[in-house]
Structure formats: C-alpha cells, structure tokens
Simulated assay, not measured.
Amino acid sequence: MRPMHARNAFALLALLACALLLPGCASTGKGEALQRAQYAWSAAIRWGDFEGAWNLVDPEYREQNPLTDVALERYAQVQVSHYRELGAPPPSADGSVGRDIDIGVINRHTMAERGLRYRESWRWDETAGTWWNTAGLPDFWRGE
C-alpha cells in the first residue's frame, strides 16, 4: 500500500471509530455494553481474529459446539472483505437482540470472493455483566 493510501485509510478508520463511539457516549448500561460488544465482534471478524471473536460467543454455545483446530484452520483460509450491518430485527420477548450482516468473503487460495448474509444474536448475561453472541461464528461454507 502506498504511504498516501495508508494515511487515507487510517484517517477513514479513525473517523469511522469516532462515528461508532459517539452514540455510545450518550447511552448507558446495557445499550452501551451491547454497542461495545458488537463493535468488538465486527472488528474481530473483519480482521480475521476468529479466536478473539470466539471469546465473545456465549459460553454455553462454546461448550456445546467446541471450536476445533481444523475449524480454526478453515477460517485461516478466508479473508473478510467487508462486514456491513443491514439492520436489526425488533428485540425478542426474552430480551435478546439481533443484527443482520452482509459479509464479503475471499478464499485465500482461489482469490474468489462471494457474499453471504449472517444474523448475529446477542443475549445479556446479568451475572457476567456482558452481552454474548449466541449464533456462533459465521458459517462461510454453508455445508460445503
């Protein structure tokens, strides 16, 4: 990447971070915690930190669906080109919230890009004081 492009990309990233963080300054409690959790999740997925994202998955889900070394190796074979929020369905009666996402995925071996949609699902854990992703990592292969 040329130096000028790197500076422009950094400036754009800084502006985006500010834009995402400003609404959080006005909110408090669970809403702010949800914004922080979703921001951390989207950043981890976007930058290919699937182990980091896995730490944001509900412990019950992780226990029932352990992440194997083979699965982690599979995630290492893709690169996420974009991660865009499409909208959010209304909160569920149990208080869980969702977010619809459009993800671009590039196969590192073939350089073929494709898009998919993914629905995040989040639940508040009163004891831990945090939101957990209950949908697990995105399935970039959908049965392949």
Results as ranks from 00 to 15, higher is better:
Arg117Pro: 06
Arg46Val: 09
Glu85Gly: 11
Pro91Lys: 12
Ser81Leu: 10
Glu73Ile: 06
Pro59Glu: 06
Glu51Ala: 15
Leu20Thr: 07
Ala26Leu: 14
Ala37Ser: 14
Asp69Gly: 12
Asp102Ile: 01
His109Leu: 15
Asp69Leu: 13
Ser42Gly: 13
Leu137Trp: 06
Gly98Trp: 00
His82Thr: 11
Thr28Ala: 10
Ile106Tyr: 05
Gly95Asn: 11
Gly48Asp: 06
Ser92Cys: 07
Arg99Pro: 06
Arg114Asn: 14
Trp132Ile: 03
Gly31Tyr: 05
Leu72Val: 13
His5Trp: 12
Arg108Met: 14
Arg62His: 04
Asp139Arg: 00
Ala53Cys: 04
Asp139Trp: 01
Ala6Met: 14
Trp47Arg: 10
Phe50Gln: 05
Leu20Val: 09
Phe10Ala: 15
Gly52Asp: 07
Gly31Ala: 08
Trp132Asp: 04
Tyr61Pro: 04
Thr130Met: 12
Asp58Glu: 08
Asn133Phe: 03
Glu120Lys: 03
Ala37Gly: 01
Asn65Leu: 13
Gly98Asp: 05
Ala19Tyr: 00
Tyr75Arg: 02
Val57Lys: 02
Gly98Lys: 00
Thr68Phe: 02
Glu85Pro: 08
Glu113Gln: 13
Leu137Phe: 04
Thr130Ile: 09
Ala71Asn: 13
Arg119Pro: 07
Leu21Thr: 10
Ala40Gln: 05
Asp49Val: 01
Leu12Asn: 11
Pro23Val: 03
Asn8Lys: 12
Gln38Arg: 14
Pro23Gly: 00
Thr130Asn: 08
Pro90Leu: 09
Glu85Leu: 08
Glu51Ile: 04
Thr134Tyr: 05
Pro59Met: 07
Arg108His: 02
Ala53Arg: 00
Ala11Met: 10
Trp47Glu: 12
Pro90Asp: 05
Arg36Lys: 15
Trp141His: 04
Val97Arg: 15
Thr127Leu: 14
Val78Met: 05
Thr28Asn: 10
Ala37Pro: 01
Leu16Trp: 09
Asp94Met: 09
Met1Glu: 13
Asp102Leu: 04
Leu20Ala: 10
Glu144Cys: 01
Ala93Asp: 09
Ala33Met: 06
Pro91Asn: 05
Ser27Lys: 08
His5Ser: 11
Arg2Trp: 06
Met111Asn: 11
Leu56Glu: 01
Ser121Phe: 07
Asp69Phe: 08
Ala9Gly: 05
Ala93Lys: 08
Ala71Val: 15
Asp94Ile: 05
Leu16Cys: 08
Ala76Thr: 10
Gln64Asp: 11
Phe140Asp: 07
Asp69Val: 14
Gly95Ser: 02
Asn55Glu: 15
Leu16Asp: 00
Thr110Leu: 02
Asp139His: 06
Leu137Ser: 03
Cys18Thr: 12
Arg142Lys: 11
Glu120Asp: 12
Thr127Tyr: 04
Val97Lys: 10
Glu60Asp: 14
